[in-house]
């Protein structure tokens, strides 16, 4: 029973991380119609930066914040390359984001080398119902809850959230009402960078990060996002939690090396399910 609970807690925490990456995908897709394949890279860059900043003597909090800012810059740069030029189709942009992710490997290996790195998070642990829970897990859950609440308020209530959604719904009409569609897209990429970066600094202490961790992160993030139909960040949170817990259970009771396979199978199942319900996934967005 206590094993089950500890798998559950770690699954929820890791699932929050997937959801953060997934919500970055959702937001960028919602504003620009681009599936950002370099989304996992922001988490990698942020985690590796945080390790460097902490090693350089920056205090906790400041180091993580700076690392997230590095991820924001990475997101913004991706956006500039992918959608900065007007008339780039979402499909071309998708390929560009893939290329940016590959290019980032070179930068990361040159900067940090090719060995996985980790850094300390919250050191303590507390007991809940006879289960020792690392405080870092609780930090991940609390921080994610706050972030998702803010995102949902922004997108569902605030006016600017509507303006952002309008960009992908009909870019032509959005320009007519005075919306700078490119600027909105760049904002989405920056926000995506921030969310990826937050995932990176929150998950960094829980699992070592290397330059190529982005592949599994983007797959897991995409699986979380697609469970919610790539529409709302809060649905990506549901998807992320489901996925995180499922992976933790598989890792705990079966075999840890099947984690990514769980994500892929879940993703496939959802996509098949959605396609069966609708003639095409695209039909909703068009």
């Amino acid at each position: 029973m206590s094993a089950f609970l500890s798998y559950l807690v770690s699954g929820i925490a890791v699932g929050c991380g997937f959801a953060l990456i997934g919500s970055g995908l959702v937001i960028i897709h919602r504003v620009t119609h681009v599936v950002n394949l370099s989304q996992g890279m922001y988490a990698v860059v942020a985690a590796l930066s945080a390790a460097t900043f902490l090693a350089a003597g920056l205090p906790h909090g400041v180091a993580e914040l700076c690392a997230v800012l590095v991820a924001v810059v990475a997101g913004l740069l991706t956006g500039l390359v992918a959608i900065g030029r007007r008339g780039t189709t979402p499909l071309s942009s998708l390929i560009i984001t893939f290329a940016v992710g590959i290019f980032a490997y070179a930068v990361e290996v040159l900067t940090w080398g090719d060995q996985p790195r980790s850094f300390p998070g919250l050191p303590g642990a507390i007991e809940i119902a006879n289960v020792r829970v690392q405080e870092q897990y609780l930090l991940v859950v609390v921080a994610s809850a706050a972030i998702f609440l803010a995102l949902d308020l922004f997108f569902e209530r605030a006016y600017l959230g509507k303006a952002l959604s309008a960009c992908s719904s009909n870019p032509y009409a959005a320009r007519v009402v005075g919306i700078d569609v490119t600027r909105m897209g760049l904002f989405a990429f920056a926000l995506g960078g921030a969310l990826g970066g937050l995932a990176g600094v929150l998950l960094g202490p829980l699992r070592p990060t290397s330059f190529d961790s982005d592949v599994s992160l983007v797959i897991e993030g995409f699986a979380a996002a697609i469970l919610g139909g790539l529409t709302r960040p809060i649905l990506a949170l549901m998807g992320g939690l489901l996925l995180g817990v499922a992976e933790a259970m598989v890792a705990g009771y079966v075999n840890g090396s099947y984690q990514t396979d769980v994500a892929l199978v879940l993703m496939l199942a959802v996509m098949i399910g959605q396609t069966a319900r609708r003639p095409s996934l695209d039909a909703e967005g068009q």
């Binding site: 719904s169 959005a174 007519v176 009402v177 005075g178």
Partner: peptide, 23 residues
């Protein structure tokens, strides 16, 4: 426009609201 240049997936109120962006 002559054609329906609307924001699909958003309500009528939200569609109109976005028009305020110009100011």
């Amino acid at each position: 426009f002559q054609g329906a240049r609307i924001f699909r997936g958003m309500t009528v109120r939200e569609n109109v609201m976005v028009g305020a962006h110009a100011r």
